[in-house]
Amino acid sequence: MKAHRDYRLTQLDELEAESIHIFREVAAEFEKPVIMFSGGKDSIVMLRLAQKAFYPARVPFPVLQVDTGYDFPEVLATRDGWVERLGARLIVASVEQAIADGVVIDDGKTSRNRLQIGTLLHAIEEHGFTAAFGGGRRDEEKARAKERVYSHRDEFGQWDPKNQRPELWSLYNGQLHEGEHMRIFPLSNWTELDIWHYLRQEQIEIPSIYFSHRRRVFERDGMLLTESDYNPLRAGEEASERQVRFRTVGDLTLTGCVESDADTFDAIIDEISVARLTERGATRGDDRFSEAAMEDRKKMGYF
């Protein structure tokens, strides 16, 4: 039997308790919730917390992944492992399919990340989901810092930052009208370091590309991108094999890696503790376009 000294929780225990509370609250109050799964470490922590919230029962929601067609195979393997472990239903919304169906338009200039928005909103509407869990953290970005745990979306799936409901104590307001849905952010109060400390504490399986490995990469716009058929080399670019790891996982044509020897949770935590660049600024092409890039995408209905 587990005991706590002096009836005190560590900050990780407290964050875990808060997130579990949010999962249960949503399960109790919403008709049709879904967990949005990106394959990244944050969404894996969400799955772990959901597992804890309902144990020994199954997680009472399906898992939704938006497949850009450009996902790392290691990420898809981890996803399948988790879905099997939880006994959850997996729904894949494919960007390719959405383009083929005319749900979103690929003009050759828009990144897959942007096309995910339309694909995601279509999937939510099609399945009639009323609540969608996302792995967003408030420490990631300035616009996120103001987002609620229960983030209301109108019938167009859009976020109105000036008209957010006040959120007090741990009393979440889940009232919805026809066609509206709620984005739920159970990791709102976690930081990047909290996530890594928790992954280490729980010894959680995450995609292998987070750990140091050999990979053929090339430089573009100051980022190290992975060599792949989806990402043809441009004039002057040259690929070489290096020892790297990823700090975030997304569309492989846009997600950069960093040179690193960190091959364990401990080594990664040491590395991050002294890192001087944010994970998004360092390795995500999609966040670098403008200072307000995230705010714009969020208003449109991004994760």
Binding site: R138, A145, P166
Partner: peptide, 25 residues
Amino acid sequence: GLRAEREQGITIDVAYRYFATPRRK
């Protein structure tokens, strides 16, 4: 944080920030 705030030069809502020292988060 938000663009509207930058334009008006004021803070309009509750924003959450995080930091940690070796003693506390």
